[in-house]
Structure formats: C-alpha cells, structure tokens
Design a binder for these strands. Structure first.
Length: 234
DNA sequence: GCGACAG
DNA sequence: ATCTTGTCGC
C-alpha cells in the first residue's frame, strides 16, 4: 500500500515530541466514524534481547471468517531506543516497510500499542494511521496514560479510560473472562465505539485479538527461523 | 524532586 | 519487548 512520508524518522527524542504534537492535530476519531472492513490487518515486531535484526510482520484476515488471507514480513535494524511515549519512532519505520508490500490494502489495521490514549494524542496506531491514510485501532496490553475503573467480569465488558480533564481516551476492554482487560483506543479514521466493536468481534477466544495475536506469532516464528539459518551459516 | 511509564 | 521452568487457577 501507498506510504505517505510526513517527516523523517532519524530524529532525536526532542524532535520526535515536537512532531507528535504537530501530527496529532490531523487525527480524526470523531464520533460517527464507522467502518465496515472486509480485510483486517494486525501487525507486530519481534526483537531479540541481544543485538541483532528486528522482524516486522503483518497478517491480513478476512473480517468475516477470520481466515488468514496473507502474511508479510520485513527484516531490518532498529536504532531508536524504547522510550515510553515514543514507541512509534522505534517501531513504525520497519512496520511501514512491511505495509509497503501489502496489496490489496486492508480496511482496518490493529496495532500492539496505543491509539490516541497517549500523552500527546499520537500513539503508534494513530501515527501509522496517518502514514497509511487508513483506519487504525490501538490494542495495548497495558496502560500508558489515563484512569479507569475495573471493567465487568463478563467478556465484552468495558470501562472508559479517562484523561486528566475527564476526556475519554479509550476503554479497558475485557476480551476474555478471567483475564486482565486490554486497552483499546481509536487510532485514526474510526471512532471509539466502532473500534471496540471490531476488536471484540475479532477476539473469539483469546485475550489478544486475532490480528495482533497472529502477527505476534508470525514475527516470533520468523525470527527464530532466520536466527537459526544465520547461526548455521556461520 | 518523585512516581509513572505502550513495547 | 525478551529470557525462561515450573506452577497455580478457571
């Protein structure tokens, strides 16, 4: 799919923060932004503790059957450090190279991280939504900012994630009974209600939604295979 | 200054 | 996130 180049990626953390503030103004998650995706993609990255290449992967699913339609992977180096709030500057460059190969483009993308539930309103999902000009949703396994009450015990129960001024940033969603909730927030071109609806719809069995869960499995599998090959060739 | 802190 | 074995609970 087509990648928009809105800025360079080799920036300092200070420049990154400035870029986020600027880009956040272009995010659209207005109530009423509903979608009916036919293809839903999930993406993730896998890195090894020791130094070595990173692996990005995207899995495209049929929105109705949840069958895997396509898989894409991309190997590359990551230099930007992990800094809470600046995750996209670490993961987005490689993820975008993987998305570049995708054809046809998906109608919705789910990411492992936050959407607008971010200090400057531009988490990984929102940032990628702008570069890909595609609806995105953030499905984080833990909270970055905001407060929330414990959602109900039943699958599908959710509690609003609220910011300092009382704004609703996202939701803590119970995708499976007996498990901790995940944090869903709109990324771009979709509203929170619709984001919640689709995340729940692609989470038939596990805590992690199928798109990102399968993408996670894919990149870990590919990393181990590639590391094995590289080890035997040396 | 202190605590919090996606992956 | 990654590493890593067994173990506790629904």
């Amino acid at each position: 799919m087509k990648i928009h180049s809105l800025h360079r990626w080799d920036v300092t953390p200070k420049e990154a923060i400035s870029i986020q503030k600027d880009l956040a103004r272009h995010i659209n998650t207005s109530v009423g932004l509903k979608i009916s995706p036919k293809l839903i993609a999930g993406a993730d990255i896998s890195l090894s503790q020791s130094r070595g290449p990173a692996y990005a992967g995207v899995v495209v699913l049929d929105a109705n059957t949840l069958e895997v339609v396509a898989e894409y992977t991309q190997r590359g180096e990551i230099d930007f450090p992990y800094v809470p709030g600046l995750l996209s500057f670490r993961e987005a460059p490689l993820l975008l190279k993987a998305f570049e190969q995708i054809d046809p483009p998906p109608d919705l993308i789910m990411l492992d991280g936050q959407g607008i539930a971010h200090p400057r309103g531009l988490g990984l999902a929102s940032h990628l939504g702008l570069f890909l000009d595609c609806p995105t949703v953030g499905c984080a396994k833990s909270r970055l900012i905001g407060d929330h009450r414990e959602p109900g015990t039943k699958k599908g129960s959710h509690a609003p994630l609220k910011g300092k001024n009382g704004e609703t940033l996202g939701s803590a969603l119970r995708t499976r009974e007996g498990c901790k909730p995940i944090f869903v927030s709109a990324g771009h071109k979709i509203d929170l209600a619709s984001a919640l609806e689709w995340v729940l719809r692609v989470s038939p069995r596990y805590r992690i939604p199928e798109p990102t869960r399968l993408a996670h499995n894919l990149v870990n599998r590919v990393r181990k295979e590639d590391q094995g090959l590289r080890a035997t060739s040396r």
